[in-house]
């Protein structure tokens, strides 16, 4: 397992909320990628977390871009570097967007970037809603969750649609590498991002990044939630390399999903039968993933 490098490219002094998973996501990602990295950041929490002009807490060049453009912006930076003769293995171009910027408004530019085979790493740090604008539901908000646009009302209540499976969306583009990683497993996260860095072509990294503010969870539980998400198979850690699935962190003993849900206020309204329904769905998805792993490795 990779070691967490001591080098820091993210300085103290962020505007992140206490217990912010996205802050850890950037910090570990930069530890994995090193100084020779250029990052495209659209509208998202990370448009604010580095600090306001003229302050900046990251020691790498940053290009802030419009909400729906991360994939296109990354393509532009990569093209400019190609034009200047800079090898993709020398400087890593990263698109670093939240779940809304990746899976909703940015999905077109992401798809174009992947389809064109652009040698970049597209990262979705997933806090499962539009957190920067104040906890509105996104395509990545899971079934059952409260958000400010899926409030718990007397007539209509909470999000009834499932979470969009972005790993499958990107895999459908035939890209060489995609992985889910978690800030609760930093060594594994660094290992996978370093692996992605060395692979030519478009890569996708899905980072699980809890948001205590939006999830109505205790900031001190952020890492605990990450571990529970993996152990309950809500957020399995796996990679897809050239179409082959590999679950790289299988829980020894699968824990009930309710142990994960109960630490978050956003699920507090759910009746017992809905918790059971979520459990059934998680089990079904997990079984499917195991089969995909088996099938693609035959």
């Amino acid at each position: 397992m990779a070691k967490v490098p001591e080098m820091e490219l993210m300085n103290k002094g962020t505007t992140a909320c206490p217990g912010c998973g996205a802050a850890h996501a950037m910090r570990y990602m930069l530890k994995a990628l090193g100084k020779k990295t250029m990052i495209n950041i659209p509208a998202c929490c990370w448009a604010v977390i580095p600090g306001v002009y003229p302050s900046r807490n990251l020691e790498i060049p940053l290009l802030y871009t419009a909400f729906e453009t991360t994939g296109a912006s990354s393509s532009g930076v990569r093209a400019a570097l190609n034009a200047k003769g800079v090898d993709p293995r020398e400087i890593t171009v990263v698109g670093f967007a939240g779940d809304g910027g990746t899976a909703d408004i940015g999905i077109q530019a992401l798809s174009g970037c992947l389809e064109r085979g652009t040698d970049t790493i597209q990262v979705m740090y997933d806090n499962e809603a539009y957190m920067n604008t104040g906890i509105q539901r996104s395509g990545e908000t899971p079934y059952g969750a409260w958000t400010t646009t899926t409030p718990v009302g007397s007539q209509k209540a909470w999000k009834r649609n499932p979470k969009k499976n972005m790993m499958e969306v990107v895999n459908a583009h035939g890209i060489p590498y995609a992985a889910t990683v978690s800030i609760g497993h930093p060594e594994l996260m660094i290992e996978k991002i370093q692996k992605a860095k060395e692979i030519p072509g478009p890569k996708f990294i899905h980072i699980y990044a809890p948001c205590p503010t939006g999830w109505r969870s205790d900031p001190s539980n952020t890492i605990e939630l990450c571990k529970l998400a993996v152990d309950s198979c809500v957020f399995p850690l796996y990679e897809i390399e050239d179409g082959k699935y590999k679950i790289y962190k299988k829980p020894k003993d699968k824990i009930p999903v309710k142990d994960y849900l109960k630490l978050q206020g956003r699920f507090r309204h759910l009746p017992e039968e809905e918790v059971e329904r979520i459990q059934e769905n998680v089990d079904k998805e997990w079984e499917l993933l195991l089969k995909k792993e088996e099938f693609t490795n035959e």
């Binding site: 290009l63 871009t65 532009g76 093209a79 570097l81």
Partner: peptide, 11 residues
């Protein structure tokens, strides 16, 4: 968006 990024990268 890509032109903007490329220009920002000096091209």
């Amino acid at each position: 968006a890509a032109c903007i990024a490329a220009s920002n990268a000096g091209a």
